[in-house]
Design a protein around this nucleic acid. Structure first.
Lengths: 275, 275
DNA sequence: CGAAAAGTTGATCTACATCAACGTGCGTGG
DNA sequence: CCACGCACGTTGATGTAGATCAACTTTTCG
């Protein structure tokens, strides 16, 4: 199979998508890195189109996506559906599941997916023992919310063309962080129905909108591979302002807030995030 | 003028909206209550239509709304605007502000507003010393995200009538928790333009939609007072399922995760909270 | 190879936007 | 005190982005 997941003893302990993502935010110490890979120890594969979580059901473990795509979506009783967000490698599902009794949304895989999972109790442990790491995970969670809010802006106030362009640029940016996009092209394992449900449009209209984008030469599509020919222009069509992705490094004040200044800190390991 | 909000000097030390809200989620100890009121010590009044936060600007303090309404909104460069959520008494602004460099949204008051504020560093302190309280605040934050996701479902897949009905029921539920709604009526200090921006509709269409709701007898409007005559039916029109508000009490497993089981428990309260 | 799923395109419909005009309450300044 | 201005609400007429319907093609996959 395609799993060589945990490297027994290479010198790079692990370069998981989550680690990549968090590293784009702050420099993790070796201890933190070790703990993180500890959390990602229990790994499972899930087939495409299977539920990782179902609306209304009790939350189980916290999950980290290591490979593959999924969607977070909500449904109305009559079947209408809204995709809230795309779940990509490095994303976490149910980070705050301890806080809620049951899930208000479903998570369904689009491709085969490799997930790590751990019991929610470890979140508490994490906050106590690795506050900086916890802060990084909280950053990842808060970013999620920011993305949903930005999509809300899309559905409320952007046209179909703008929304679509915006989404493509967003995906490109997110995938780049975890090394899954290069030169403006990436694999988009998504039907037009799912795009429609993500953008609040009909399938037919998504189809026509993609055609417009293709005809204008901004993007190319062959199969599931999408190529963005002119990111700048596409971003401008979608009124894309990446502020909401909060891709810049952790602010200085973070250390003050989240470092564990209670216990005597281990040796010299204190490197502030390099600006 | 319509403010007699806080009770001048009852024997209850303080019953702030935030306390009310958190208490609906878990039973707070006296220590926790004390610390919370400590956090709400520094209080400021803000006039209507003033910004508590501006898109793009650096985050400042964490704020707790004690009285009045505000909106969280995002704008496109050309002026189109989306209201992401309504900020009500008991809500927190910038809970995770330490994590981000700058704000991707604005917060603007609708009425005169009374806010408490404290420096973000105290969040860390809070997590270390009062993990249950921190969990309750995290719950409040996660709920926020759930509300935004639900609104996304509205904009993507509900009709104008459904959206509007849904929003009214949501506000009713949220206000009930902080004792600001009774018998299905409450004050809605909001222009139709703001409703339009919240629901992704035009002003004209909101107006007609409200008229339909009024004509059908589901709601009554006089001035800023709105009366919901038949909550059940209105909820059914809006396909309202309150699951997403996560109004039920904290699950048992929360204690396991967030109680401070590291320090010698119960013996003497280690109150190191007073910085 | 055959059937189902997904994509495509044209014709038509409609929910909502836009435009326009007017009403209504209210604060301000003369 | 009035009047004028302005923000807000209301309603009708008309325009349009995107939905729906329908038919067909292409791809996927067992």
């Amino acid at each position: 199979m395609t799993t060589m997941t945990r490297v027994p003893a290479s010198r790079q302990p692990e370069t998981t998508p989550l680690w990549l993502k968090l590293s784009s935010y702050l420099v993790l110490s070796d201890d933190e890195k070790l703990y993180l890979s500890e959390l990602e120890k229990t790994i499972v594969k899930q087939p495409p189109r299977s539920d990782l979580l179902q609306q209304g059901e009790r939350y189980r473990d916290v999950r980290i996506i290591r490979d593959g795509w999924a969607i977070r979506h909500k449904a109305l009783p009559d079947g209408r559906r809204q995709v809230v967000n795309f779940v990509l490698p490095g994303d976490i599902i149910g980070m705050y599941c301890t806080l809620f009794e049951s899930a208000d949304h479903s998570v369904t895989t689009l491709t085969q997916v490799e997930v790590a999972s751990f019991p929610p109790e470890r979140i508490g442990e994490l906050f106590r023992s690795f506050p900086r790491l916890a802060a990084a995970l909280a950053w990842s969670g808060a970013r999620e919310e920011a993305m949903v809010a930005e999509r809300l802006l899309s559905l409320g106030r952007r046209t179909a063309l703008e929304r679509t362009a915006h989404l493509i640029v967003e995906l490109l940016r997110r995938l780049s962080v975890v090394n899954m996009a290069a030169d403006g092209h990436f694999v988009l394992p998504v039907t037009q129905e799912i795009l429609a449900d993500a953008l609040g449009l009909s399938i037919v209209h998504i189809n026509r909108t993609l055609r417009r984008l293709r005809d204008s030469g901004l993007i190319e599509l062959n199969g599931q591979r999408i190529t963005v020919n002119d990111v700048r222009q596409l971003a401008s069509v979608g009124q894309f302002d990446e502020l909401y992705l909060h891709l810049i490094r952790a602010p200085r004040r973070l250390e003050r807030t989240f470092s564990d200044n209670r216990s005597p800190r281990s040796g010299g390991r204190d490197e502030q995030a390099k600006a």
